[in-house]
Amino acid sequence: MFTVTFIAILIVMFFLLIRVALGPTVFDRILAVNTFGTAIVLLIALFGFLVDRPDFLDIALLYALTNFISTIAVLKLFRYKRLGKAADR
């Protein structure tokens, strides 16, 4: 049963990559990458259960946090053209 969900999420990731390649605007791409990260977290958690090693959940937890930070960082870079300072007012 884990295998079915695993394959479904792999299909989801495939189409998300198509959206990343296709996406007309840059925001479409960022949205698809953000959702791709969610799919990866689910995939890692499922994989841990599939091979019966729940230690993989630690990696999933870290990935969930890194995914959020990377999305915010890319958006900040896109908006202010730099990562260091907040904004020139």
Binding site: F2, V4, A8, I11
Partner: peptide, 12 residues
């Protein structure tokens, strides 16, 4: 799990 995968596919 099945419903979750179905919702993921619908979202895609």
């Amino acid at each position: 799990l099945l419903l979750g995968s179905a919702f993921c596919l619908i979202g895609t």
